[in-house]
């Protein structure tokens, strides 16, 4: 559960579930005996809607939907609390965005981090899951440790690693012991993005491990027995049974990681704050800096709209793409 993200494939799945649901009668909260009394039913229905849904709906509208609408509106203005008043300026912000090389750079950085984290955390999660999928206290302890970074705040993780990665930090000292010379992990412009990605991989690997373990354990054992009878060796078993049936796990991990890394903020702010210069600035960091430090709220809103569109497109593409691979059994 890479921090703060939510399973976005939810939308898709529940849609599908909704379709399979048998058609119920209109007001299932009422016993059928009461249904004939039309007036009462209507009253009850509105009361029930009010009792059950209104609070959630209201607060959701206030703090999610209305802000999205406002954000889109702001993106067409030059709103800046450091100046008096503001006006609608049409697509000016978006036109500026197209010319803003720093924003383009932020998109590239975000994509690199997202890609590395998704692939590396998945791969390492799978390997570690295969490694510890046995019963013994050793493997239990390993599992516990692999998962621990997951429950820590990204702020804490970021600070711990920032000490590891400074020039005379622990990592360089360790490399020194074995005769290698390190580098400025957080100041070298050609490395810093990978350092950040590595820290996020360290933190999110445990999540992948746990998900893969659950998927591995859900694979029916008779499949392996059948394979044994057919004379398959270990590698064949993995290739033809385990790997295809891991697909749901891969889908979950990929979607969770992609979405969480696309809005990555906490790690970056603590590790480098976008530096050196703007080398490691991600989209989220750029939005928050532009909005709350440079106070260009209108311009930042247009970036937010772009990020939102990006996340929407990516989650749809990834979910549909990965779903196709999954095998039913």
């Amino acid at each position: 559960m890479p921090n703060g993200n939510k399973p976005a494939l939810a939308v898709n799945k529940s849609l599908i579930k909704g379709k399979h649901e048998e058609k119920g009668s209109d007001s299932l909260l009422l016993p059928s005996s009461l249904k004939s009394r039309g007036v009462k039913k209507l009253n009850n229905k509105t009361t029930n809607f009010f009792l059950f849904v209104s609070h959630g709906l209201f607060i959701y509208l206030t703090f999610v939907i209305m802000p999205i609408v406002l954000c889109i509106y702001y993106s067409f203005t030059n709103f800046n609390p450091l100046f008096k008043g503001f006006k609608v300026i049409g697509f000016q912000n978006y036109a500026d965005l197209l010319k803003d090389s720093a924003f383009g750079h932020a998109i590239v950085v975000t994509c690199i981090i997202a890609l590395i984290v998704t692939i590396a955390a998945n791969a390492m999660g799978l390997l570690s899951a295969l490694l510890v999928n046995y019963k013994s206290w050793v493997y239990n302890a390993s599992r516990t440790i692999f998962f621990t970074p997951q429950v820590l705040s990204p702020v804490v993780v970021g600070f711990i690693w920032s000490i590891m990665l400074t020039d005379d930090g622990v990592l360089n000292k360790l490399l020194g012991y074995i005769g290698l010379s390190g580098t400025s992990w957080l100041a070298n412009p050609s490395i810093v993005v990978y350092s950040i990605a590595a820290v996020i991989v360290w933190q999110s690997m445990g999540f992948c491990t746990v998900v893969f373990l659950a998927t591995l354990q859900s694979i029916p054992s008779d499949l392996y027995e059948a394979a044994k009878i057919d004379g398959c060796n270990r590698r064949q078993k993995f290739r033809h049974i385990t790997y295809p049936l891991l697909a749901p796990g891969i889908t979950i991990n990929t979607v969770m990681l992609l979405i969480s890394t696309f809005k990555v903020f906490d790690h970056v702010v603590v590790l480098t704050n976008g530096g050196p210069g703007t080398t490691s600035e991600t989209i989220s960091l750029k939005i928050i800096n532009t909005a709350f430090n440079e106070n260009q709220m209108g311009y930042a809103s247009s970036m937010a709209v772009v990020l939102f569109a990006l996340i929407g497109v990516i989650s749809i593409v990834v979910v549909t793409g990965l779903k196709r691979r999954e095998v039913e059994y």
Binding site: S54, H55, F58, I59, T62, M66, L70, Y73, T77, F79, P81, L82, K84, G85, F86
Partner: peptide, 21 residues
């Protein structure tokens, strides 16, 4: 919720008010 509703609807009408001025 109702209390919040009243306030937030006024805020809704004038989202353009810059807070600082």
């Amino acid at each position: 919720v109702a209390g919040c509703g009243k306030n937030s609807s006024t805020s809704n009408n004038s989202p353009s008010e810059p807070a600082a001025t």
